[in-house]
């Protein structure tokens, strides 16, 4: 592998990693605090991409698309939490799997009804459409670099919010001991809604950034959902730090696995990685609940 290819693939890996982190952050917080398995998280990713594509088609402005799609995804998330999922925090995991599975079917069909089955075009903003020249003559698409930067910024922001603010303290308190946090006067319901909407916003952001790279189409959230679940499990369910480390491991592992190994093995690398890590640490790298 030449040095320039190595740099390019490393960047690809880190970029996939930050995308996965945006997805996994929501999943892991929702699970850690509310004890809810949300298989429909990928639908919020899809929603973000479709909202952005629609606004982009109407206004031709990527900035506006971002400004509309992220809050819109958060709203969809808030609505689903309020209308359906709120009733399932105390139910068994099986019920949660079933209800979010049902939600995926509904989401996919609603998207099919509104936008049809043909992929909706979404191109990167003009300013970011070309390549960037990096050191050593490496060329890299500016848009992918921008994703990397946005993802890193969001990760930093999340770290600051979760570790250094009062809301973050509530979130951590809720994740480590829900009844005690509630007894100490934290409005747990409000925190739940807030966390779920924030997770939805991050999923929507990931979706709209993935839009120009992959395709904006029905079911686009499901492959990334699986990877995000792998990240969540490896990192330790409920741990933001774990999600970040695991997202980078999976992002880089998957990218290099596909480049270096034959296809049948390359596509399985991350799952073997998961199996190996869990055989060593069944609760993930950074377990939250003892």
């Amino acid at each position: 592998m030449s040095p320039s290819l190595f740099v390019e693939q490393s960047l690809n890996g880190v970029q996939l990693g930050v995308m996965l982190f945006l997805m996994a952050a929501g999943l892991t917080l929702v699970f850690g605090i509310m004890n809810l398995i949300n298989l429909a998280h990928g639908s919020l990713y899809m929603a973000g991409a479709f909202f952005a594509a629609t606004v982009f088609q109407l206004t031709d402005s990527f900035t506006l698309a971002v400004l509309v799609a992220v809050p819109a995804s958060a709203l969809v998330g808030a609505f689903v939490e309020w209308a359906v999922l709120r009733r399932f925090y105390q139910r068994s995991h099986l019920d949660q799997v079933l209800v979010t599975f049902g939600l995926i079917l509904v989401f996919n069909d609603v998207v099919r009804m509104i936008w049809g089955v043909v992929p909706v075009p979404l191109s990167p903003p003009d300013a970011l459409s070309g390549p960037v020249h990096l050191f050593g003559g490496v060329e890299y698409p500016a848009f992918r670099l921008a994703i990397l930067a946005v993802g890193a910024l969001v990760a930093l922001g999340l770290y600051i919010v979760v570790s250094h603010t009062r809301v973050g303290m509530w979130i951590r308190a809720g994740a480590s001991d829900r009844p005690m946090a509630s007894a100490l006067g934290v409005d747990v319901e409000l925190v739940f809604s807030l966390v779920f909407s924030a997770g939805a916003a991050l999923a929507g952001l990931a979706g709209l950034m993935a839009g120009p790279i992959t395709a904006v189409q029905v079911g686009m959230g499901e492959p990334i959902l699986i990877l995000a679940l792998v990240v969540t499990v490896i990192g330790g369910i409920g741990s933001i730090r774990g999600a970040f480390v695991a997202a980078l491991i999976i992002g880089i592992g998957d990218t290099f696995g596909r480049v270096l190994l034959p296809p049948a093995l390359g596509s399985m690398v991350i799952f073997m990685l998961m199996a190996a890590i869990l055989a060593w640490r069944p609760k993930g790298l950074f377990p939250v609940h003892g």
Partner: peptide, 20 residues
């Protein structure tokens, strides 16, 4: 591998193995 864990971990790991 998956049965050493429980609950949500088991669900997500079996899902991952399915995709593998």
């Amino acid at each position: 591998v998956s049965l050493r864990t429980s609950g949500a971990y088991f669900i997500m790991i079996t899902l991952a193995f399915n995709q593998m």
